[in-house]
Design a protein around this nucleic acid. Sequence first.
DNA 1: AAGCGGATTAGATCTAGTCTAAAGATATTA
DNA 2: TAATATCTTTAGACTAGATCTAATCCGCTT
Lengths: 142, 142
Amino acid sequence: MIPNGQSVESVLASHGVKPTPQRMVIAEYLLNTLDHPTAEEVLDAVSGKLPVALSRATVYNTLNSLKEAGVVREVLAEPGKVRYDANLSNHHHFIDVKTGQIIDVPAEKVEKLGKLLDKKFKVHGVQVTFFGDLQQDESEQT
Amino acid sequence: MIPNGQSVESVLASHGVKPTPQRMVIAEYLLNTLDHPTAEEVLDAVSGKLPVALSRATVYNTLNSLKEAGVVREVLAEPGKVRYDANLSNHHHFIDVKTGQIIDVPAEKVEKLGKLLDKKFKVHGVQVTFFGDLQQDESEQT
DNA sequence: AAGCGGATTAGATCTAGTCTAAAGATATTA
DNA sequence: TAATATCTTTAGACTAGATCTAATCCGCTT
């Protein structure tokens, strides 16, 4: 999600991405959803928001540019497709591998993980993917 | 990896998978490597180990059967390809998303994760995917 | 040995993503 | 304004990983 009242254009600019119309509508969509859409979903969502046709190649080009600039991250939750996550808040993911469900988790919840897991590694950031049952525990809702 | 002196055949049998020759050579390969090979790598590795040709479809069929039976897990470390992990020891993964490197982590190292992360969820098993730098900390080697 | 059901096969097909070559846009310099 | 350079976008061809199809094969049971 986009922080405070920052404009999409300024987000792109601050990451060194030249703000073309195509990049603007794609970034705007990504920065204003809590979902983690695939490239195809991005294409569907932003098609028609420009006076000209939007090419599939442009969507992939833009997603790769945004990824390299650090505006979005790839999330691998299901085989055969890449999902995209706008990366402006500091958070991580739970992924239920049975369903592909992606759950956002604030970074501070996992900050002690490095010491718990293995002293051989420094943890700068972590994404957590469940492979077992991910069951909601009704008795301990926060 | 395969536990103690158990045979590949008995592993398949105990998981309810009928031990055909094709399944035997595929399972034997997976159970005796520490790598996390792709389907293509499995095909390359076991081709020629049978007197007959081994079809690509059979490799995919077998990997899916083994996955459903719980003998292997899928590991998503790089876009566009699925890796397979023989799942007979209780462990998890660190994945460096910059390089795709997969690092095995014994389960007991992450068993407290559920409480740390979020009380809403019971953690039955977890796979940990790094998205930041995964740097080896030389001063704290175990 | 006849019949049945699951396993295997080669190759066609599907799908996500990349590549290509041409056209379009923007900036710079003269 | 014209010339040029560079970067972006485009449609469609292409690639790679994986699935599907329909025929055949294999091991049982009767």
